[in-house]
């Protein structure tokens, strides 16, 4: 698994539950080191070990932990990166949904070695959508649910996002009802990045 994913899980646990909780998870998972490096690669088994350890240490269901991770990745004030990259997908939430299939390609542009989840969007009507998610990590669909919910808030759209389970081919299905694309004032998005020193 690419370090970026592992590092994201680490930051999520640390920023949400505190450094002591992350340390406990790292111990429980028997990582043997304190920090994941975002730009290195790790054995896939480590990611599962960390998630399992987080489930035990937090006493929360794996699905919930993964969904909270998705929400964190988009909405945590310290983490603007993913949110901004996703906002490049379109002017409104519907546009954003239509751009989801581009996501693996976009991620490849930046980091060719990342195995991004494969996403397929089905638009049943202008308000009813499904996303099919094929990913290496079991339960990755829950992360996508978290991301979709947080991005709806970001755009100011009123949506219902529902995890519908795993199809026989392993794809996780997510249903999205877009009730109002312009429900609330979304977060501001400037195309041009703030110049970082």
């Amino acid at each position: 698994m690419h370090g970026l994913m592992n590092r994201s899980i680490q930051c999520f646990l640390r920023d949400t539950y505190g450094a002591a909780t992350w340390a406990a998870v790292a111990r429980q998972a028997q990582l043997g080191f304190e920090n994941f490096e975002a730009m290195l690669s790790y054995d896939d088994a480590l990611t599962d070990a960390v998630l399992e350890a987080a489930v035990q240490v937090l006493g929360r269901a794996r699905d919930t932990v993964l969904e909270d991770l998705g929400i964190y990745l988009v909405s945590h004030p310290e983490r603007q990166g993913l949110r901004r990259l996703l906002r490049f997908g379109g002017v409104g939430y519907a546009d954003f949904l239509h751009s989801l299939e581009d996501l693996p390609g976009r991620i490849r542009l930046a980091l060719p070695e990342v195995e991004a989840p494969h996403l397929v969007l089905e638009d049943h009507s202008s308000s009813e959508y499904s996303v099919l998610c094929h990913a290496g990590l079991a339960g990755a669909g829950h992360v996508v649910v978290g991301i979709l919910r947080a991005m709806a808030d970001d755009y100011g759209a009123l949506t219902l996002v529902e995890y519908q389970g795993v199809a026989p081919d392993g794809a996780e299905r997510i249903a999205i009802t877009l009730a109002d694309d312009d429900f609330a004032e979304g977060r501001r998005f400037d195309l041009a990045m703030q110049v970082t020193p």
């Binding site: 970026l4 975002a38 730009m39 990259l85 490049f88 976009r106 930046a110 195309l191 990045m193 970082t196």
Partner: peptide, 23 residues
């Protein structure tokens, strides 16, 4: 917009790599 996206994504990656190099 894709070009802007790439520039931003690459900057983020470079930032991470700089951090990694320092470490």
């Amino acid at each position: 917009v894709e070009l802007l996206y790439v520039v931003e994504a690459k900057s983020a990656v470079m930032h991470e790599l700089r951090g990694l190099n320092l470490r």
